[in-house]
Design a binder for these strands. Structure first.
Lengths: 342, 342
DNA sequence: GAAGCGTATGTTCACGTTAACATCCCGATG
DNA sequence: CATCGGGATGTTAACGTGAACATACGCTTC
């Protein structure tokens, strides 16, 4: 990597002087406008290169009112889904010529959140993607400045928002039906935290799927997305007789369940089938490889940005549209028919 | 969350008019300057609240030359280390009143990279943290604009850079010595990609540790950080006789090795000990729970930002300083003495 | 050949903020 | 009581860009 020499950054005026044109012409070249003579364009480009000119984004933003930046607000970078969604958002934003301003909210308390919102409020972004447990949005102290379009990645958000999310209900149904299809008479559920709408939707869909088949669901076991909580739930389940099928609300918790089953000497999948949700990269390398529900995080991120940028372009500030991205069942080695040979 | 009404964003002039003061006084209140009468300050604050005034960061940046934003350039959001480092960076940046502009480089090809550098070049940031395989920095086409301080998170960067990184050599030595200390006569290594300095450093340190004990290291098995590549290496190792200890260059690959051992019926840790590197959150829930090297990613992120912000404050553009963050051996169930009972 | 038109380029100004300087007022000081 | 000092506040200008308007020139058309 080279570092250029010199200190003062050249402005349009400097380029204009060197090229012997007005700064407006430099502006036109810089923005690729059509009405510039080819010779002049070349002269200006040459001067830009000589001086190492770079447009000043602050001045540009001040003049145009556009920052070409979107904010992404999220609670944590520790869950697989958030990260992958962020990845998808960043990629699509970059494709559209937008930068991504990260606004993590370490702690979903109001104090912590206010800092992130200050950034937004300072109008440094043209719009925002909020990857956040939707309940937080209801806290009265959150105020978004007017005119900033928002897309929420969480189905729990109210009708005031434009929402993009994975079809949680579909995924949970696919997992549950897969297990029932293998002959299991009951499916135990290790749930995510009740503060998460995703977790709630998955649990509800699991419950509905069972009752639709005339099965009375056992109470779900509480979890908090971490593998450790899955392990605790798994130990509980391993102690009970008759547990043959477990659906964990994410892969990390499924991993914890697997560990608990191994420890207790319950063979997976011969005695107990285990399914997860997410299809994180490592899931195929669990022991046994995990049957799970694949979420298309890239699509969620992509769609969020597309919706957001179209709102930015239209100056649209409304909401209400809900887009669900379908899930896909991925069958691996952790699930099998009841009483199947080891 | 509430959405304010109205469209046009109020400027300082609007606030000044309502409060009956000059816009300069509003500026002083906005920036917390001392020389403002308490009454006036209250009046202005009240007017700000009434109008929902938010400072325009573009104008502020244009005037002051400071963006209060740092750029983070990274190749991928798919490795645990990058994400956690990013998390640490974001947290520390936020503590210092700085925002984080994410500049992912989907593909470490020049074409892909240039977009990210354009952002930097457009001076939208006061400095940058580069989390990148350092070899890329040597590609001649990378040009950072003058005057932007940079901190590199990768020990492979040359002396021109300020570097913060985990002490890779220490960690690899800790893991290798742990296995040797358990009585193993040889330690096989599943390495990361040779394009990564971290991977190279870990492999070198593993090699040195063995030779220092008079052991001739077996050739390392190639990997690419993914659990799948660890699985391939593990299948290879499981086929060989005499393999009793494996040190994988990260936890994901260790997971793949574990799977391969399970599949081959080699008991871990009774027959084969496996150690990883990173201590990702899930490592404790692997089967068996993984002995690994804990990296303090939060510290790496924190230190990077601290170094960077002090350079920003000093207008310092130099390099050369290298800061290494120590690692810690975390012993769990995947390693044991040779021939230990199951 | 005069009128009209389109293209290339220049000039002016405003975006919202803050540094620097100017002004004002009140109290202290001799 | 005149002067000075200092804190509070106002005025001016400039940061770099790009939209709007202005100008200049060459070419077509009848």
């Amino acid at each position: 990597m080279k570092r250029s020499e010199g200190t003062a950054r050249p402005s349009m005026a400097d380029v204009a002087r060197l090229a012997g044109v007005s700064s407006q012409t430099v502006s036109r070249v810089s923005n690729g406008h059509a009405n510039v003579d080819a010779d002049t364009r070349a002269k200006v480009a040459e001067a830009m290169r000589t001086l190492g000119y770079r447009p000043n984004s602050a001045a540009r933003a001040l003049r145009s009112g556009r920052f070409h930046t979107i904010g992404v607000i999220l609670t944590t970078l520790r869950t697989y889904g958030n990260i992958r969604t962020l990845d998808g958002v960043a990629e699509e934003a970059s494709r559209g010529g937008y930068s991504v301003l990260l606004m993590p909210v370490a702690d979903p308390t109001l104090r912590q959140v206010s800092g992130a919102y200050e950034q937004l409020s300072a109008q440094a972004v043209d719009g925002a993607v909020i990857i956040l447990e939707a309940r937080l949005l209801d806290q009265a102290e959150f105020t978004l400045p007017p005119g900033i379009p928002v897309v929420v990645v969480d189905s729990g958000a109210g009708p005031a928002y434009t929402v993009v999310d994975t079809d949680q209900a579909l995924g949970a149904r696919q997992a549950t039906e897969h297990l029932l299809g293998l002959g299991h008479r009951q499916v135990w559920h290790v749930a995510g935290p009740p503060t998460s709408f995703s977790a709630v939707h998955r649990a509800e869909s699991w419950r509905r799927t069972l009752t639709a088949r005339g099965i009375t669901p056992e109470p779900p076991l509480p979890g908090d997305w971490t593998s450790e909580s899955g392990y605790q739930a798994g130990r509980d389940l391993a102690r009970r007789a008759g547990v043959t099928a477990v659906f964990a609300a994410n892969d990390q918790m499924a991993l914890g369940v697997l560990r608990a089953m191994h420890e207790a000497g319950r063979a997976v999948p011969a005695e107990v089938s285990v399914a997860g949700f997410d299809d994180m990269e490592e899931a195929r390398s669990f022991w046994p490889p995990l049957t799970t529900i694949r979420q298309d995080f890239a699509a969620v991120g992509r769609l969020s940005v597309q919706k957001l940028l179209s709102k930015v372009a239209d100056g649209d500030d409304g909401g209400g549209e809900v887009t669900l991205v379908p899930t896909e069942l991925v069958v691996r080695g952790s699930t099998a028919a009841t009483g199947s040979p080891p």
